[in-house]
Amino acid sequence: MSGLLEVTDLVAGYGNGPAILNGARLSVRPGEVHCVIGPNGAGKSTLLKAIVGMLPIRAGDVRFKGESLKGLRPDQALRRGICLVPQERALFPAMTVRENLRMGGYSIPDKAELERRIDGIEERFPILRERRGQRAGTLSGGQQQTLAMARTMILKPEIVMFDEPSLGLAPKVVAEVFGIMKLMAAEGITIVLVEQNALMGLKHADRGIVLDLGKTLLEAPADEVLRDPRIGELYLGGRSEA
């Protein structure tokens, strides 16, 4: 089988430290929502960083549409259509909302096209139009996450990867975040999501991927993962009922 993005036997780590990922696999299917779960230190964030080239790949391969991404920088991966939203939102706090959106389209050379796309985003997320002149650092947590997610849509990417988007947000806001994610999926954007809250992440996903000790233990439809008794015991605190 060959998905949109294929990660095979990936080995990666920071600097000259030990390998965090040790044979991780991931098969991403177009148009679906994928949720990667696993305990702290399993290598979930590392996996996303290695895919976009923030960390060097020591062994194994990452193929996007059959083409290897090995050795590419994040800006080069981005131009191919893979976008990562890191933990803790990733805004430019001293820039305005509008400037943040403009940075989202940094790799689009055509200024007029960029403005058109930003207008389109503002239409869809009125709150961003309302706050366009406000400094991003002064937005509420939910608004910041909305901005960070909306910003990725400017590039019309094929795959968007989120690293713990619900981190530090109130439950009501978390629901909003997953709502936006649904919206993106409905537009045909493929989503890869890393979630500490495995139960919630899997509920919103089509596919579930279990990562532990740097290895992929299981890749299956999300509801199957939720029902798997081993997963219940290891990661869901013994509550396997979903």
Binding site: L217, L218, L234
Partner: peptide, 12 residues
């Protein structure tokens, strides 16, 4: 898909 058991993971 790799087979694994919960106890093996804990041991690892």
């Amino acid at each position: 898909m790799a087979e694994f058991g919960a106890s093996e993971v804990v041991a690892a």
